[in-house]
Design a protein around this nucleic acid. Structure first.
Length: 937
RNA sequence: GCGGGGGUGCCGGAGUGGUCAAACGGGAGGGACUUAAGAUCCCUUGCGCUUAGGCGCUUCGCAGGUCCGAACCCUGCCCCCCGCACCA
């Protein structure tokens, strides 16, 4: 069968029948679910399909359960990455062109047209939508929108007004990675090699120059607590230093550092320059200890890092110790003060830096091992080191660091500034990324305690799938503070309180699910006429619908209709995304619903899933192992891709997509389809045998489990059970029946199987549904219900006995090498079953025998009982609570006699052990409940 | 460092106190079918012994402990992955 052709056929029919276009319906319970909308800066790959297929399978399942399901989709174009990418295309950056060409196979004539952000967005969003249609997502596309649409801008503006009213928007300053050349904030996508700049606070300590009062050397450090161990100050003699003044004071820093510092201290003005060498030999004052310390040369001091001036603490900093050692034999030897201990560290003596250098055999300050030594000693001292300086004695390194830093800043002895700590990082324009302190920055105040409290309460009634993600949300709510919510550039919505700024992407995507509910109706209106009163009316039921209608140019009925539709779908029943959004988007999503909507409209469930690996490894541009979705669909077929990404692993775990699995799925599906085609032609036949009851029991148990497993979106379980196990059961069934199954039973099985597969492989399911002669779309069919009466553990257990007996026979044949002519099976008598249960309960030989002797029937067989009990007790762990009667066992085996005979090419005779005669009798006596004795001749 | 997840056979991964040498899938080996290949089907896949379905030993990150009994419970340790913000 041609999967691709079938897929196209059904997609067309679905579209024509508009079965996924959801409208409010009286009487039908609604179910509204959304997945995080895609950011169209590339075509989607197979990883994106995980979240959407999970959502779609769920949507399809709920639809089959009778819910009126809404699953919409839009596009998130807010932010700057697409700007940066378009710029790179315009500049003909070979790297980006290679990604588009080599990985995504974008036609060569299209690539140059992507040099403008909106063209890029429009191309990729069309590409993504096409992929979503090809894979068969049951999306109501009428509600599609882009986050830069004028309608949506009005909506976001309204949202921010709500936040402002609540006092959740605040203003302040904030350090951001910055390109001084382009005068813009930089994100990872703006840097060479896509490095995410990491900003940390650094302390700049003032050392007053002895011969130049009022002028200070600024020493940058991450470890202000070691100020008490300073023996000298380091200058790079090859570097150029600048004198700069600020607030009436003069500071010396390297000329390269000055530019970066000016971004954080706007008033800092350059006044003059000095060569590094000029400082050498002079002294400066450690303001904390009041000591004079010499200024000495060191090559490890990088003028590009910090301030280009470093304080030397040889007791605790490997580099400092090395640099002092390297001075030996120069004119500076012995000039530094003797090393002084500040922290004590278990396992180390007075001078940990010295010891670690000796242990690691670091040669000099230019040895790369010095970096490793530094990291190790810093980490150890910060967390396990204890201060030995009097006022801070016994304090942990990290705590002392904070305290001393604050004291120095307050006393005016130091400045707190920021630094890119994983630098140097280069902007794509070539400039070095610095840190800028952006003033007038707007924040959403997620640190607001009252808001946090309400959000925590909202989470109490949100169902989380998987539930184990809850601590992560709790933790996130706890540490969330103010979050900058606007940027200087990017696509999106202008910030209403500062039109020069654009609302940032994680801030404009928190309540957009509400927008979908009326998005298709809004398309009829003039966006420019929409205002906040409109959204107040539709979303919050405030104001007069008639007046609002007049203003926006709609009828009152239309406005009321929107209000009704919003209230019909809201609250959101299920929100889906990959797990990486827990710590930002998904938490913001709840925060913002809490801020804007009343409690009864807060979201009800959040489901998060893992990623998709490609042949065992993470997909990445550098590995070139990204499999674009549409390519995968072309290669394997939509249903195979769908099935593979959701059934490969438990929801929260990463699932692996590999060729072998896809092919396995494909061949099994083809086998099932051929069965369906064959069976569809057959007429009902014959009576039901034990094996038929077995198959039906398995089927209904499967239906029951699948229904339960959908509750927790345990899609892997459903898929495994409904797919692999079905295939295995049917294979066994055909083997058992010699290929001549009961077609009525088979038809029931296959029909329910198709229904269970429909959420996963909808196209094949539709095709099968049609072949089976069922009416309508399987997509709109009713989910099967399990008939508890047909689930029979005794029948299933009986079949297990058949399987086990067959294995035993095979074992015997193998070991003895006999070619059987006749196989006799003897089923254990009823009294043995009593003993069996007794042993299972007692678990001990003596008490079991004691209880047996209290039974009249067993007492009469004391000798046999005494023999059987220890045998059973030996395998007490494997005794089953369920005990079949001899009749049941006899019936199961007799029923299977023909099958067993066929398997072994022999006649199979099944009897009760008491019917055994002659030499067989002795063997027959060994029969145990659920383990017939076997005699082969 | 903090928070979360996790360490099981050749591999991916079930399993959370006895039915576990361990589901299911993959790989590998053997066999059937076939002119052949593929597909399909059957068997084997920790070690050793065993001419009646069996027995013994060693395994579930490491080390201890609880229990008649532990992959599963407790304690300590080691290792891996993810997140820690203004970035979608």
């Amino acid at each position: 069968m041609n999967f691709r052709e079938t897929e196209g056929k059904w997609q067309k029919r679905w579209e024509e029948a508009r079965i996924f276009e959801a409208e409010p319906k009286e009487g039908a319970e609604k179910f509204y679910l959304t997945a995080a909308f895609p950011y169209p800066n590339s075509p989607q790959h197979i990883g994106h399909a995980r979240t959407y297929t999970t959502t779609d399978a769920y949507a399809r399942y709920m639809r089959m359960r009778g819910f009126n399901v809404l699953f919409p989709m839009g596009f998130h174009v807010t932010g700057t990455p697409v700007l940066a990418m378009a710029k790179r295309v315009a500049a003909k950056d070979p790297e980006i062109i290679e990604i588009f060409r080599g990985i995504y196979h974008i036609p060569a004539d299209v690539i140059p047209t992507l040099d403008e952000p909106t063209r890029m967005v429009s191309y990729f969003s069309r590409e993504i939508e096409a992929g979503m249609r090809e894979i068969g997502f049951s999306i109501d596309w009428r509600r599609k929108f882009y986050s830069y649409d004028a309608m949506f801008n009005k909506f976001i503006k309204w949202q921010f007004e709500k936040l402002k009213e609540k006092g959740y928007l605040v203003k302040g300053s904030h350090p951001v990675p910055w390109c001084p050349n382009e005068d813009n904030a930089v994100g990872a996508h703006d840097t060479k090699g896509d490095v995410d700049p990491d900003i940390d606070e650094m302390v700049f300590i003032k050392f007053e120059l002895d011969d130049e009062p009022g002028a200070f050397l600024l020493c940058a450090t991450f470890r202000p607590e070691t100020i008490y161990g300073v023996t000298n100050v380091w200058i790079n003699p090859e570097a150029e230093y600048s004198l700069a003044s600020y607030d009436g004071k003069n500071y010396y820093v390297s000329s390269e550092a000055l530019k970066a510092l000016q971004l954080q201290i706007p008033g800092l003005k350059a006044k003059g320059r000095k060569n590094g060498k000029e400082f050498l030999g002079k002294e400066c004052v450690n303001l904390i200890t009041g000591e004079n310390v010499p200024i000495l040369p060191a090559s490890f001091v990088d003028p590009k890092v910090g301030s280009g001036v470093v304080m030397s603490v040889p007791a605790h900093a490997p580099y400092d110790y090395l640099a002092i050692r390297d001075l030996a034999g120069t004119e500076w030897e012995g000039k530094a003060l003797p090393p002084r201990q500040v922290l004590e560290l278990e396992g180390f003596g007075q001078f940990p830096a010295k010891e670690i250098i000796e242990r690691m055999k670091v040669k000099d300050q230019n040895d790369p091992m010095a970096e490793k030594a530094t990291e190790e000693i810093y980490r150890k001292e910060a967390h396990t080191g204890k201060m030995v300086i009097q006022e801070y004695e016994g304090m942990r390194g990290v705590d002392a660091k904070e305290k001393i830093k604050e004291e120095m800043v307050v006393a005016g002895q130091a400045l707190k500034l920021y630094e890119v700590i994983n630098g140097p990082i280069w902007c794509r324009c070539g400039a070095k990324v610095c840190v800028k302190l952006v003033s007038d920055q707007w924040f959403i105040d997620y640190g607001n305690e009252g808001w946090k409290e309400e959000t925590r309460k909202a989470f109490e009634s949100i169902k989380l799938i998987p539930e184990k993600t809850r601590p992560e949300y709790d933790y996130t709510i706890g540490w969330l503070k103010q979050r900058a919510c606007v940027r200087a550039q990017g696509l999106g919505t202008r910030f209403p309180y500062d039109e020069t700024k654009v609302i940032e992407s994680l801030s404009d995507s928190t309540i957009y699910m509400a927008f979908y509910t009326v998005a298709h109706r809004l398309k009829k209106l003039d966006a420019s006429k929409l205002d906040s009163a409109f959204f107040d009316c539709v979303m919050l039921g405030k104001g007069d619908a008639g007046e609002v209608a007049k203003k926006v140019g709609a009828t009152k009925a239309e406005i009321e209709g929107m209000r009704r539709e919003f209230l019909y779908w809201y609250p959101l029943d299920s929100r889906h995304s990959a797990g990486d959004l827990v710590h930002n988007h998904l938490t913001f999503f709840v925060f913002n619903h809490v801020a804007v909507f009343p409690p009864k409209l807060w979201p009800k469930q959040i489901a998060t899933n893992g990623f998709v690996l490609m042949e065992g490894s993470k997909m990445s541009k550098s590995l070139g192992n990204i499999l674009p979705l549409r390519e995968a669909i072309r290669k394997y077929g939509a249903d195979i891709v769908r099935f593979s990404v959701v059934s490969g692993a438990e929801l929260s775990a990463d699932s692996d997509f590999n060729q072998a699995m896809a092919e396995g799925v494909s061949s099994r599906l083809a086998w099932m389809m051929s069965l369906i085609e064959e069976n569809a032609a057959k007429k009902g036949s014959g009576g039901k045998k034990a094996i038929d009851s077995w198959l039906l029991s398995k089927l209904h148990r499967k239906v029951k489990n699948a229904t339960q497993n959908f509750e927790t979106l345990a899609l892997r379980e459903v898929a495994q059970d409904a797919f692999y196990n079905s295939v295995n059961e049917l294979r066994w069934y055909f083997r058992r029946t010699g290929g001549k199954g009961n077609s009525e039973v088979l038809s029931d099985y296959l029909g329910k199987w198709v229904l269970m597969m429909a959420p996963f492989t909808p196209h094949i399911a539709e095709e099968a549904w049609e072949k089976l002669g069922r009416k309508g779309f399987v997509s709109s069919a009713e989910w099967p219900s399990a008939d508890e009466k047909l689930i029979d553990e005794r029948v299933e257990f009986a079949e297990e006995i058949v399987v086990k007996t067959s294995e035993d026979v095979e074992n015997i044949i193998k070991i003895t090498g006999k070619k059987p002519v006749k196989i006799h099976l003897f089923v254990a008598s009823g009294w043995k079953r009593k003993v069996y249960s007794l042993v299972r309960e007692e678990k001990r030989v003596d008490t079991a025998i004691k209880r047996a002797m209290a039974d009249a029937e067993l007492k009469g067989k004391a000798k046999d009982v005494a023999k059987l009990v220890p045998q059973l007790a030996k395998e007490v762990g494997s005794l089953s609570a369920l005990v079949l009667t001899p009749e049941e066992e006899l019936r199961a085996l007799s029923d299977a006699a023909e099958f067993l005979g066929r398997e072994f090419g022999a006649e199979v005779i099944v009897r009760g052990e008491e019917k055994a005669e002659g030499e067989q009798a002795k063997k027959a006596a060994n029969a145990k409940p659920m383990k017939p004795s076997i005699f082969i001749e």
